[in-house]
């Protein structure tokens, strides 16, 4: 059984159709890159999988581990193992990263019928996972993303991903706004978390990220449809020829 199956997905916002029949299958252990010019539906696709309700799905279905994903609430999807790395992580003044993560982990555990994680275990987990993205120890006591640099925000996304150990991660433009050092750290974090049990969808419009995180498949989302899929070499071809040759 595939981990994620998107079948003929159509969606619109305020009457404007954005996705016009997307088909995508992701199996466990795979890394998929979705590329394409801005404004062609990449972030919309990510948001729909995560459960943002400003979009109206007009046709098609999304099956995740055999379940109809579109029927689940945002938090249920997270507890089922879906993680969205935000293109623009949100600042939450007054909520510390540790409190935020503790609440998230324990609510996910509650969903699965587990007791809250013991505090000591949680602290240990924080220490361990902070290292993966070289997250500054001081940041953990600060409010979520408040006053963080662009690089720190993206590192914090991968840190949260490491903490929550999702089955399917969708990283939306995680490379945007990163300098080359931050990119390397973020990418090595993602690579460290890669396993045969989880899958990743990378959304990007630069080939650059794929030098660091090598995908198994590359798809091009263009004007609301996946117009081309191929092996990792497709990314290089796109880099060379631009998106226009797909027309």
């Amino acid at each position: 059984m595939s981990l994620l199956e998107i079948k003929d997905l159509h969606c619109s916002i305020k009457g404007k159709e954005i996705l016009k029949g997307v088909n995508l299958t992701v199996n466990k252990g795979e890394v998929h890159a979705i590329m394409g010019p801005n404004g062609n539906g990449k972030s919309t696709l990510a948001a729909i999988i995560a459960g943002k309700d400003i979009f109206e799905v007009t046709k098609g279905e999304v099956i995740y581990e055999g379940k109809n994903l579109l029927e689940l609430s945002v938090e249920e999807r997270a507890a089922e193992g879906i993680f969205l790395g935000f293109q623009y992580p949100v600042e939450i003044p007054g909520v510390s990263i540790s409190n935020f993560m503790k609440t998230a982990i324990n609510e996910q555990r509650k969903y699965k019928g587990l007791d809250p994680m013991p505090t000591m275990e949680f602290m240990k987990l924080m220490e361990e996972k902070k290292k993966i993205v070289e997250l500054d120890a001081k940041l953990a006591n600060r409010s979520v993303n408040e006053g963080f640099s662009g690089g720190e925000k993206k590192k914090n996304e991968i840190f949260q991903m490491a903490m929550l150990n999702p089955t399917l991660s969708i990283l939306d433009e995680t490379d945007s706004g990163l300098d080359i050092d931050a990119l390397r750290i973020v990418a090595s974090g993602v690579n460290a978390l890669r396993s045969s049990e989880n899958s990743t969808i990378l959304i990007t419009h630069y080939q650059r990220l794929l030098d660091y995180i090598v995908p198994d498949f590359v798809h091009v989302l263009f004007e609301g449809e996946i117009v081309k899929s191929g092996p990792k070499e497709l990314a290089l071809e796109l880099e060379e020829k631009g998106y226009e040759w797909l027309r």
Binding site: E75, R77, A78, I92, G94, V95, N99, A104, E107, L164
Partner: peptide, 29 residues
Amino acid sequence: DESAMFYMRSRGISERSARMLLMFAFCTE
């Protein structure tokens, strides 16, 4: 803040808890 609500829920925090966390943070400042 609706964007903060979505961010928190996308991490598995229930709508109720997310609201509580936001209100609590608002107050304790």
